[in-house]
Amino acid sequence: MKSFKLILNVWRQKSGNADGKFVRYEVPDVSEHMSFLEMLDVLNEALIGRGEQPVAFDHDCREGICGMCGFMINGDAHGPLPGTTVCQLHMRHFHDGQELWLEPWRARAFPVVRDLMVNRSAFDRVIAAGGFVSVNTGGVPDGNTLPIGKLDADRAMDAAACIGCGACVAMCPNSAAALFTGAKISHLGLLPQGQPERNTRAERMVTQMHAEGFGHCTSTGECEAVCPKHIKLEVIARMNADFLRAKLRSRD
C-alpha cells in the first residue's frame, strides 16, 4: 500500500462571527485508498492527540448521496475530479508532497458555522417556497395511471439527482443558486404532478432565491463542471422560461 505526505492549509474559523485564517498542517502518512474525508479524520485524530481542536467539516453518508459534505480544494468545489463529492474523492488522485488549500463554500447566503462547515439552510427556504407538489392524501392510486413520456421521466430523474450540496453556488463567480433551483423546478415541472403549481413554483422559488442573497447566472458553466450529479445547464434555461411565463400569465 502506497502512503505519502500532504501539506494542508486549512481555513480555521471558530464561529460565524470570528475572523478566520489558514493554518498549515502536515499529514505524514496518507494512504492512497483513503477518501479525502478519511484523510481529514486522520489529521483530526492527531490534532485531538495534541489537545487541539479538530477541523470541523460536514459529512453524513460518505457515499456521495446525501449532499452534506463539500468544501473547496485548491479552488475547486469538491476537488479536482468531475462528478464527485469530496467524500468519494480518493487520495490516489493526489501525490507526495502536494500542498492543498481547503476553504469553505464562500457566499453571503452560506455563512460559515465553523472551519469548513457552512449553513445551507438558505437552500431549505428556497425549497419551502415552492419545491414541492401539493397532494390530497387518500387511497393509493393504481400504478401507471398517470402517463409520463419516457424522455420526460428520464429528464425529471436526471434533475432529481441533485443532492443539494451547494457546490454550484460555491463555484459560481456570482454565487448563483441557479443550477440547484433549476434542478428542482425541472424535476417537478417535467412531471404531470408538478403542473398545477408550475407557475407559482417558478415565481416563488426564484424570488426566494434572490431574497436569500444568491446571485445571477452569467452562463459561465462553472456550476455544471463541478456538480457531483452532472446537473445540466439546461435546467437553468427551463427555470428562466418557467419564471418568465409565470410572470406573463400571472393574474394577481
Binding site: 485548491n74 457566499a107 463567480p173 454565487s175 442573497g213
Partner: peptide
C-alpha cells in the same frame, strides 16, 4: 449585487472551463 453576495473572496479559485 454579485460583489455583495460574496463578502469574503476565495484565496484560491480554480476555473473549470469558463471562457
Amino acid at each position: 449585487q454579485k460583489v455583495k453576495n460574496r463578502p469574503i473572496g476565495y484565496t484560491k479559485k480554480g476555473n473549470r472551463g469558463a471562457t
